[in-house]
């Protein structure tokens, strides 16, 4: 994927660029709003990681508003030290697709950026999701693995749906809390781990191969073994 990073802090930018390259992405970097806007408007990117406060007269919000004003729909993830709820709302209102507060774990950033690009590509609502031999019918709200039907509670269904929509990508606990439960804070208790382990009991345990993997220090990933 081709990703633009607009971030003025040298250390943070260096850290992000290095990590993204290691994850196999092509990365461009701008250290001020003006250059960032120029790059974002003139070249094609799969995603943009954007700092809110930037030197050069154009801050992140202005940059994004200008970009969206030109009908540019490249997914944008805000990476900002402004962490109040209002800041977050402002960022999303301006056309941001996701908002991550500094300091952040790189795994979280990577997972969210990769999830964004997937979201950008999806065309039209799918009615059927498939990962390996796991199959989800969104219309009849039924799940089967191979020939066997799996009974899920409504919330388990939504959890699995989220994982399947992001199949092959790392999904963090925070992303699950936001995406499945609509909670925008981190509980002290490991609630997500418990729910994942319950889901595993139903989806993986009775079968030979497991699809739902734990990614150390990051989160979870649903993927068929052969890909």
């Amino acid at each position: 994927m081709r990703i633009l990073v607009v971030e003025d802090d040298k250390d943070v930018a260096g850290f992000v660029l290095k990590g993204l390259r290691e994850a196999g992405h092509t990365v461009e970097h701008a250290d001020n709003g003006r250059d960032g806007l120029f790059l974002a408007a003139s070249e094609n990117f799969d995603a943009i990681i954007l700092d809110r406060m930037l030197p050069g007269g154009i801050d992140g919000l202005r940059l994004l508003e200008t970009l969206r004003g030109q009908d540019n729909t490249t997914p944008v993830l805000f990476l900002s030290a402004l962490g109040q709820v209002d800041d977050r709302v402002k960022g999303l209102k301006a056309g941001g697709d996701d908002y991550l507060t500094k300091p952040f774990a790189f795994a979280e950033l990577l997972a969210r950026v990769e999830a964004l690009t997937r979201r950008g590509k999806s065309d039209g609502p799918a009615t059927r999701l498939m990962v390996g031999d796991l199959e989800m019918d969104l219309l009849s709200r039924s799940v089967r693995r191979g020939t066997q039907k799996i009974d899920l509670q409504p919330r388990e269904f939504r959890l699995l749906e989220y994982l399947m929509r992001h199949a092959g990508q790392v999904v963090t606990r925070t992303m699950l809390l936001e995406g499945v439960w609509d909670y925008h804070f981190d509980p002290q208790t490991n609630v997500i781990d418990v729910h994942i382990s319950r889901l595993r009991q139903k989806v993986d345990k009775p079968f030979e191969t497991s699809l739902l993997h734990t990614v150390r220090n990051a989160g979870y990933m649903l993927r068929a073994e052969d890909i």
Binding site: V85, D86, V89, R155, T189, N190, V191, H195
Partner: peptide, 25 residues
């Protein structure tokens, strides 16, 4: 400063969700 996010809501489903989330734990 958060009063802007206030709205009339029914807490019932919100709390039921929470019960579901924590029951497993």
């Amino acid at each position: 400063s958060r009063r802007a996010a206030f709205a009339p809501i029914d807490l019932s489903p919100v709390l039921t969700d929470m019960d579901e989330l924590y029951r497993a734990v």
